[in-house]
């Protein structure tokens, strides 16, 4: 129950606000990490956390839903009837089944991460593709915008292809048909 509250909270967190909160806590109060993205691993922590937390919340939601579906599936009942332990059932049968929607959404999640990168790179002053794109949009630099957008779209499509392949690996039913 607590988990579902955390998940919905994490899924509703906008990057720009989460980033501000992380900067205030970790570089303002605790003074542990730099507020702007410096080269090196320390500068990566906050931007990565900003992008990862909402996504984790969202994928967690999806995963829990599919886990609950899988727990009521016939193959789980038959495993229980065979006397497998509850933990074993979850690990062997349910987890694989429940990870399928998560896998199929991860390609799409990659796209949302790129959207998020535009915001996050701006906040953390990280000179990446997202910020290049934003600057180009602001000054209406058409060739740069088109270049970045085409590049990202290609990467996104390739990513979608990869997740499709990963799904075939994870789900034997897809291989048969």
């Amino acid at each position: 129950m607590l988990g579902s509250g955390l998940e919905i909270g994490a899924a509703a967190l906008p990057h720009f606000w989460l980033a501000s909160a992380l900067i205030v806590v970790f570089s303002g109060w605790l003074g542990l990490l730099p507020p702007v993205s410096t080269p090196g691993p320390a500068g990566l922590v906050l931007p990565v956390l900003t992008l990862a937390l909402p996504l984790a919340g969202f994928l967690g939601q999806v995963m829990r839903e599919s886990m609950l579906t899988a727990l009521e599936a016939p193959f789980v009942i038959s495993a229980r009837a065979r006397g497998e332990s509850e933990a074993g059932i979850r690990r062997v049968h349910v987890l694989r089944h429940a990870s399928l929607p998560g896998i199929s959404l991860s390609g799409w999640a990659f796209g949302s991460l790129i959207s998020g990168a535009v915001v996050v790179e701006t906040i953390f002053a990280r000179p990446g593709l997202g910020r290049t794109l934003l600057n180009a949009v602001t000054v209406q630099d058409v060739p740069v915008v088109i270049g970045v957008v085409l590049f990202v779209a290609t990467a996104y499509i390739l990513m979608t292809l990869l997740t499709d392949l990963a799904q075939r690996v994870a789900d034997p039913r897809l291989r048969r048909s």
Binding site: I114, S115, V118, L133, V137, V145, V149, V152, A153
Partner: peptide, 17 residues
């Protein structure tokens, strides 16, 4: 094929902020 914000940014580039 375009992640959501990219589509929005393209639109804004054409019509101004």
């Amino acid at each position: 094929a375009f992640p959501g914000l990219l589509l929005a940014l393209l639109f804004i580039m054409i019509f101004g902020p």
